[in-house]
Amino acid sequence: MRVTKIRLLLLVVVGLVGMVASCAQMKTIPGLPASHPEALVAGQQVNCAECHEDQQKGTMKAFSSFSHTQPFVKNHRFYAASDDRLCSTCHKSSFCNDCHTNKVEMKPSTIYSNRPDREFQHRGNFITLHKIEGKLDPASCYRCHGRANNERCIACHR
């Protein structure tokens, strides 16, 4: 019993020492800037590699992975899941929440009908098409409407 207590105490001490050492070390870990140092043109398919080629430092991912090519924009969920702090150097949270939110007032494609280049979901006749698209890939509906933002789904899907 006493041996167990001593081991637990040792474990706590080691843990505390580890935490203190980590905190001291953290001052040497670089962080991303709060915002991108240069303004970028709205609507541009930003090519990060234009300026950041071969600037991969420490444990950072290569900037070229984040160039806003058409496939990147289409698959941005993968990148935002583990690197939204990099996204936030250029995009405010509201940029994401135009689509990804719990409660919307109108379709993003209606709010930003002057920005057809942003490729919003649910353009045009989607009210008919969702009866097909929902069967094809229900996960694509669930990602936004499953846990939230489903008041309009429930209006019909009772």
């Binding site: 001052k27 962080g31 899941a81 509201s94 719990n102 007032e105």
Partner: peptide, 26 residues
């Protein structure tokens, strides 16, 4: 609807931050 409303403290090192309020987590 309040989409988000939060206070953030952002540390200069280690990409550390603390946020409190209504916020999104990814």
């Amino acid at each position: 609807n309040l989409t988000y409303g939060y206070l953030q403290y952002r540390f200069k090192q280690a990409n550390s931050n603390i946020r409190a309020g209504r916020l999104f987590v990814h």
